[in-house]
Write a protein that binds this DNA or RNA. Structure first.
Lengths: 243, 243
DNA sequence: CTGATAACTTGACGTCGCTAACTTAGCGCC
DNA sequence: GGCGCTAAGTTAGCGACGTCAAGTTATCAG
């Protein structure tokens, strides 16, 4: 099963010990994608590279460190995908929407990596300068900046955009996570994409709308009276852009 | 570490073989809550009940079946919590909001169970009449019914409420899942609760608003022009109930 | 040519999920 | 009241896992 490479692997030269590190990382990600998290074994990774098992521990503290490295790469890829999706979009709200769609798209096309990144048993990264947490923070900061641009345009009316960012992130993550977990069993890819678009638009529009409600809304719940809410929203429908 | 009980456990009588089954299940959940998923070992569970390890396999096919049983109980508890929260609330939108809050609350007070339920490595329950999937479906159906009541009142204007249900579920799940995963590191409980309330209200309001937008919105993205959106929303603010 | 040492390998420990084969306790039955 | 069937367990062990201690081999400075 765990195919050893044809070339028995030449030992690394004196200075280039990190070569194996890169190969191990690549093998880990390949194994993860091809056979799932359960198949990612220190033994299997080592075998795939063509090296003995304990050799892994010369370059990674433990199995967790190996997966952490994959997480780091995943954060970078996720950030890049979102950035690329928003590139050249002038309107900040539309740019934010595209970021959200790109997030879900990336998550669904990198399911195993996403699972390891955000659905793992426990990431007790108590270390404050943990590189994978830092990468996540950076990705979140980029999203916050995108939200901030919406605030500047008056789409969101909030003093601190970070809460809004988290809530939007939760909406996108919720879709990816639910689909990956298998809680939503039979669903075509097209349906999933439609759901993602819907959830993201809901979150975006909801954020814009929520900040325009009276301040005491938090205490009493927003619009206890559905009838009043319906009346208000119907009034809005006239005022919104139609095409 | 794995403390055996003081009473060495009397063997079950002839007919009551299921007694051990219940004890194993209880021990599993306790172990899960007290020491986390990693501590849930077939050996540890058996030791806690005071029985030999293979005895577990007389009542559960494998470790997965043991965890599945916990999942089943968790689904039931989650459903009950949502139902209790909505009980006696006449307004359907407010009832839906309370259901969402109860969902997040339950998830955060049953983190380990929630993790096992919806953040597990893989739930390849291909079996169509898998009881845990069925329980999830039942919980989802209840939520759909709550959404349907909002549709009847005109809060949501959709033909099929199931998509809306999934999107709302995703919003609530997203918050729980993000917090549990540790992606949002330092956060007080009060802040988390506030975030949850915000995310749920955003999703609910967004759903109500989205269905009032023109039909071609899906193709071109909703409100490409932020300025127009802002103008429309500000118009709305006047019409909405203020107190 | 020769050490020093970076880059590995061999072998093993303890724990895991799970199985096969054996043992013991309760109950119907003649 | 002893007998035998079988439900309800136990003992022993397999292969795979993460990880470590100690030994080995290849490379390069001198």
């Amino acid at each position: 099963m765990t195919t050893a490479p044809a070339t028995p692997r030449t030992r690394a030269r004196r200075g280039e010990g990190d070569r194996l590190r890169d190969e191990l990382l690549e093998a880990t990600e390949q194994l993860l994608v091809e056979a799932g998290e359960a198949a990612v074994t220190v033994r299997a990774v080592a075998a795939r590279v063509g090296v003995s098992t304990p050799a892994v521990y010369l370059h990674f503290a433990d199995k967790q460190a190996l997966l952490d490295a994959v997480c780091l790469a995943t954060w970078v890829g996720l950030s890049a995908a979102m950035r690329a999706a928003a590139e050249g979009i002038a309107d900040p709200f539309e740019a934010l929407r595209r970021r959200g769609l790109a997030y879900v798209q990336f998550g669904l096309t990198h399911r195993e990596q996403y699972r390891v990144l955000l659905m793992r048993p426990h990431v007790d990264c108590t270390d404050p300068d943990c590189p994978v947490l830092a990468a996540g923070q950076r990705a979140c900061d980029e999203l916050t900046a995108a939200v901030e641009r919406c605030v500047e345009q008056g789409v969101f009316r909030v003093a601190d955009p970070s809460d809004t960012t988290l809530a939007l992130w939760a909406a996108a993550h919720g879709v990816v996570s639910l689909v990956i977990s298998g809680a939503i069993p039979a669903m075509e890819r097209a349906d999933i994409d439609a759901l993602a678009a819907m959830a993201i638009e809901m979150a975006g529009l909801g954020a814009a709308l929520r900040t325009r409600l009276p301040d005491d809304a938090d205490d009493r719940g927003i619009c206890k009276d559905s009838a009043a809410l319906v009346a208000g929203l119907d009034l809005l429908a006239v005022g919104l852009p139609q095409g």
